[in-house]
Each structure stands twice: as C-alpha cells, then as structure tokens.
C-alpha cells in the first residue's frame, strides 16, 4: 500500500539557469509505482516553523521505477519551497513525498497531441512525451523560453524527439506561432498548455478563436497560494481559533496547528479539500478553479488550499 513516501535526494542538477532538477529515490529501496504523464507529487519541506507542502509535476520517464524527478524554478518572490530547494536542499536529505496524482492527464483518444509550454511549464510534458513516444502516438512540443540558457530539458528533448520539439527563445526574437499552430491540425487533435497564466490564456484563446471545441483544450494552472492580509478562522467542532499569517495558506495554518485536512493538489483544482462553511460574517476570497460561480456566491464551501477570508468571523466544519 502506498501513502506518503520517505525519499532521499540522490542528485541535484542545475537543468538551466535558475531551474534545479531534484532526483528522489525511496529510502527503503524497491520499485516505485509507475505514473502517468502530467502527474504531480506533493513534497513537504521545512521552512522555519512552517512545513511547506508544494505540488511539483514529475518530469522523468514514468517507466523509470527507481526514482522520481522534479524541477523547480527559483521564484522571484518565493514562499519558501523554491528558495529551500535552491539554497538549502542537499544530496542525502530525506523528504516526505506524497503519491503521484494526476489532474492534467492526456486524453488518450487524441489522434495527435500538441503541447505548448512556457518556461518551467515544461515539466509535465517531459513525462507525457516519454509515454507518447513509447506508445507511438503523434505529438509535437512547442516550448517558449526567455533564452536557450533558461530552457530546461531543451537539449535532451531535442535529442530524444528531434524535429517534434520546437524551441522559441525570446532573446533571439522568436515567438510562439500560435495562430499557425492551431491551423490545419487533423480532427481529433488535443492541445495542452502549461506555463505562465498569460501564455496559457493566449494559447487557449487562439485555439477557441480558430473554432476548437473546449473538449480538445487542456491546461494546468501552476499556482501557489496567494498571500494576503492575515485573518483568523474558527474550528466549529472545537471552537478553537487558528490564525493565518500573510504568507501562509489557510490549509498550511491548519496543518501548523496540528489539524490534517484532506488535500491532493494544493492548487485549487481537485476539490479534495472542500470544507463546509458553518458561519460567515465577511467575504471569502475564493482563489480556486474548482467551485462554480454559483458556489462561490453562496460561499457555503471554501477550498482551503487557495482561498482566504476578509471579515469578522469564519467558522468551518472542522
């Protein structure tokens, strides 16, 4: 049975400028489960008094059962995870890693897969392409980067997949040819995008403008919980108050207080951490992609991994 894994850092590699790849192998040895392209794991990292649990896409071959790899960009305003991995993590360290979970799965029916990555958004596609290539599926990757020096995995992907990989370096004046990309693609093509929100919005909007149906469009929102004003939440079952700091998510504050709510993605996508609101005097600042606009307006449910609160009193069914 598989729950959280204790995994040892066996290699650290600067994949590109500001992007560090981490290889993790199980402390107890043995084979890991294979996983599916697009899957992420949640990695727990100590950050002062807080344990940061961040989701990272697996960016290795899913058939390599000896280890998992993640790649982490150094964030300008790091909440802790990125700085920890870049500055403090060392080979030999042991981290707690959750089981792979996939919220960005390829549509296996596709006649062809078009992947559009921006920057660190390349990670889920590294694993996807390994699966596509092994299964003999048609695919192409379009990868936008600031510069070739910042293009993680670019060399290895071009070696593996040749002309199916196209790189567009901004400092060379190259731009993603979005309009051309969505033209003349065979029926049954699916489009996937991962990267900065602006890039994903542009990709999806271009495809929609070219008449693509929503069913063929897939995106993964790489989001960290937003910082904000501090607030206090009251636990309905115990009456206990828990303070949420500006750079802490509600879920993280609850975990720091010894409560362990259910979660999977920690990015507002999967719905697993949906929590019932018992009492509300104020406004929930919904930060998730899961609730419908109606559910947001009702505010009977809060996704505690991403959402914050502003007001006098928030009581949760915890």
């Amino acid at each position: 049975m598989m729950g959280d894994l204790q995994m040892r850092v066996t290699a650290l590699h600067d994949e590109a400028a500001g992007i560090r790849r981490v290889r993790l192998e199980p402390v107890e040895g043995g084979l890991l489960p294979a996983f599916s392209g697009g899957a992420h794991v949640v990695v727990a990292m100590p950050d002062g008094d807080v344990t940061r649990r961040n989701p990272y896409s697996l960016c290795c071959d899913p058939e390599d059962r000896t280890g998992y790899e993640i790649a982490v960009a150094r964030a300008a305003a790091s909440r802790g995870g990125s700085a920890y991995i870049h500055e403090r993590l060392a080979v030999g360290d042991v981290l707690t890693v959750g089981a792979p979970t996939n919220l960005f799965q390829p549509d296996w029916r596709a006649k062809k897969h078009i992947l559009v990555a921006g920057g660190i958004g390349i990670t889920p596609f590294v694993a996807m392409m390994a699966q596509f290539a092994r299964a003999g599926l048609a695919f192409e990757l379009h990868y936008a980067v600031r510069s070739r020096a910042a293009a993680a995995f670019a060399g290895v992907l071009q070696d593996r997949y040749g002309p199916r990989v196209k790189i567009y370096a901004a400092d060379e004046g190259a731009r993603l040819p979005l309009g051309a990309l969505v033209q003349n693609q065979p029926l049954g093509t699916h489009l996937y995008t991962c990267g900065p929100e602006r890039l994903m919005d542009a990709v999806l909007e271009t495809a929609r403008q070219a008449g693509w149906p929503e069913q063929a469009l897939h995106s993964e929102h790489f989001m960290a919980p937003p910082p904000g004003d501090p607030f206090t939440v009251t636990l309905g079952r115990s009456g206990r108050d828990v303070a949420v700091a500006p750079d802490q998510s509600l879920l993280e504050a609850l975990e720091a207080a010894g409560i362990n709510p259910r979660y999977l993605c920690r990015g507002g996508v999967c719905g697993e951490c949906a929590t019932k609101v018992v009492e509300l005097r104020g406004t929930i600042l919904h930060g998730d992609h899961y609730l419908t606009p109606e559910e947001r307006a009702e505010s009977r449910t809060i996704m505690i991994c991403m959402s914050r609160f502003s007001g006098d009193r928030l009581v949760l069914d915890l």
Binding site: M1, M2, G3, P33, F35, A99, P100, T101, L264, C270, G271, E272
Partner: peptide
C-alpha cells in the same frame, strides 16, 4: 463519482 475521481494510486 466525486470521490472516485480523486482516488489515488495505491489506495
């Protein structure tokens, strides 16, 4: 269905 969609490997 909601429950099953989040079912994890190994569980």
């Amino acid at each position: 269905l909601k429950y099953l969609l989040n079912l994890q490997v190994g569980k």
